[in-house]
């Protein structure tokens, strides 16, 4: 997703739930526009027959066995919840 103008930047803001001031908007848009040039420059590199780099670290993941372990109770986890109700996390209503 290249950020090329105010419209595409507004869409990115909406997707990320970001509220920016007008000054912040101008600064961040300028930053993104400059990065576009870098990205376009990278696109010019010939990657034919180059194996995809799957991760920056030359490591592979560890895996665990499929075993159920209960480590926490609901009450312990909900201590930090701003609001909870009958065992649920409670959030502002999402649909009318």
């Amino acid at each position: 997703m290249l950020i090329t103008d105010k419209e595409s930047f507004k869409r990115l803001q909406k997707l990320n739930q970001l509220a920016l001031t007008e000054k912040e908007e101008t600064d961040v848009l300028a930053f993104f526009t400059a990065r576009n040039e870098d990205i376009t420059a990278l696109g010019a590199v010939d990657t034919e027959n180059v194996e995809r780099m799957v991760h920056v670290m030359p490591m592979e993941t560890v895996v665990r066995e499929d075993k159920e372990i209960k480590l926490f109770t609901r009450d312990e986890l909900q201590k930090s919840a701003p609001e909870s109700y009958e065992g649920y996390w409670q959030v502002p209503r999402l649909v009318e």
Partner: peptide, 28 residues
């Protein structure tokens, strides 16, 4: 599976609300 994909909480269907949870699957 018996447990979830990225943590060891139960993957069983149903249960009391928020009984099969830990800091990892709660996004702490």
């Amino acid at each position: 599976t018996e447990s979830k994909i990225f943590c060891s909480c139960s993957a069983k269907f149903g249960g009391e609300q928020n009984d099969h949870v830990c800091p990892a699957c709660c996004g702490m």
